[in-house]
């Protein structure tokens, strides 16, 4: 059985024990309403070994990677790296891609910059 908690800590390089549970990450998060679990819960649940619940959540694809939680965290915990690691833990699994590359064209429009497409491929699929 995979020890997801250790795996996520390894991928992210984050030590969730540095967290003092102030909730400033969640207070700063602009995607709060789009996520079932919020930045402070990611940190807490990785620490307490509840990673699979996080992996099943859709919110891992709506984290904007805006780094507001990283910048404002008083303890330098870097919640966004934890969220990213959970997302990677999912998409690196066999068939774990959130979006297959051939699904992407349907999401595009004329004006969308390339940057967005590459970003989405990277965020939603393995080795995108």
């Amino acid at each position: 059985m995979t020890d997801w908690s250790s795996r996520v800590q390894e991928i992210s390089g984050v030590n969730p024990r540095k967290c003092m549970k102030c909730g400033k990450c969640t207070a700063a998060c602009p995607a709060y309403d789009q996520m079932e679990y919020h930045p402070h819960q990611f940190v807490d649940m990785v620490q307490t070994g509840r990673v699979e619940e996080l992996m099943a959540s859709k919110g891992i694809y709506t984290c904007l990677s805006c780094f507001a939680c990283v910048e404002r965290c008083p303890r330098n915990v870097q919640p966004s790296s934890i969220i990213e690691a959970v997302r990677l833990a999912v998409i690196r699994r066999q068939g774990g891609n959130h979006r297959k590359p051939d699904e992407i064209p349907a999401l595009l429009n004329e004006e969308l910059p390339q940057q967005a497409i590459t970003s989405a491929l990277r965020k939603y699929s393995k080795g995108g």
């Binding site: 602009p30 992407i104 999401l107 595009l108 989405a120």
Partner: peptide
């Protein structure tokens, strides 16, 4: 504060 970033694609 974030503009919405790449999430614009899905949401």
């Amino acid at each position: 504060e974030c503009c919405g970033g790449y999430v614009t694609l899905e949401n």
